[in-house]
């Protein structure tokens, strides 16, 4: 615990991830759709960054590129000091296992594993064991201490997503990528998840990148970047929900 805090303080000013001049297009020729158009973005350590934008703006593509889930046509993607664009499939797998965490809209838990096994899955794949104190702290933070032996089918949607959050947090990754984490939840469960993410950043110095189209969700972030037609069009720092809504309104008006 102590070491983690020190480490994060030391590197607070560093970058957890960055994209440099990243471009990506789907299809070729006349039917080509530009998803990312020369985007550069820095993700700072220990910050909660939200990526927003209308459907088709390229926000998910950007997140997939940053997380090493998708390839890019040109440009560079870094996680910490590691350049993803040159890594092999095996290297990418190892990176995802140790240095990146994911939270998906569809929870994506393994139905055959208990909640605890789902949480420790990335560590088990890497043949690592969790520090018990850290594990207890994370489980306590998501409020699942009495649900650990349950299978996903025995948990509510909110509980499942909290399991997914704990799974992402436990290996202390460089970055957690959350893809519409509240998209499948009612507003109360969604707020719980967002509060937990916020807390991870504040208390555990975790770096989080979240893709969302919900202004209320984006308001939990330290910074919101707006994408439109594959370009970075706006950057808000510590916004509230109204600012986010206004910006989105402006963007969609400019679009029409």
């Amino acid at each position: 615990m102590t070491t983690t805090a020190v480490e994060n303080t030391d590197t607070l000013t560093g970058l957890a991830a960055r994209a440099v001049g990243v471009a990506k297009a789907y299809g070729t020729g006349a039917t080509a759709v530009v998803a990312l158009d020369d985007i550069s973005v820095d993700i700072r350590r220990g910050r909660f960054t939200a990526i927003m934008g209308p459907s088709g703006s390229g926000k998910s593509t950007l997140m997939h590129a940053l997380a090493g889930l998708d390839t890019v046509d040109s440009g560079e993607v870094w996680i910490g000091e590691t350049r993803l664009t040159t890594l092999s499939d095996k290297g990418l797998a190892d990176l995802r296992r140790n240095r990146v965490g994911f939270v998906f809209q569809q929870f994506n838990l393994l139905p055959t594993l208990s909640a605890e096994e789902n949480i420790t899955l990335p560590l088990a794949i890497a043949k690592r064991t969790a520090d018990q104190a850290w594990f207890d702290l994370v489980v306590d933070a998501v409020g699942l201490a009495d649900r650990l032996t349950h299978r996903p089918s025995e948990l509510s949607g909110g509980q499942q997503q909290r399991v997914a959050c704990a799974r992402a947090l436990l290996p202390k990754p460089d970055v957690i990528f959350a893809d519409e984490p509240t998209g499948n939840l009612d507003s109360r469960s969604g707020a719980e998840i967002l509060r937990f993410l916020r807390r991870s950043v504040d208390e555990f110095n975790q770096t989080i990148v979240m893709v969302t189209h919900d202004a209320t969700a984006a308001a939990y972030a330290d910074r919101v970047v707006f994408l439109q037609d594959g370009k970075l069009v706006h950057d808000l720092v510590e916004p509230d929900a109204d600012e986010v809504l206004d910006t989105m309104k402006t963007l969609s008006e400019g679009d029409s």
Binding site: D89, K90, A93, D94, N108, I125, R167
Partner: peptide
Amino acid sequence: TRELGLLRAVGMRRSH
């Protein structure tokens, strides 16, 4: 398919 994708996302290698 979805589960398999998740396992890849949390770091399973092809050999795994």
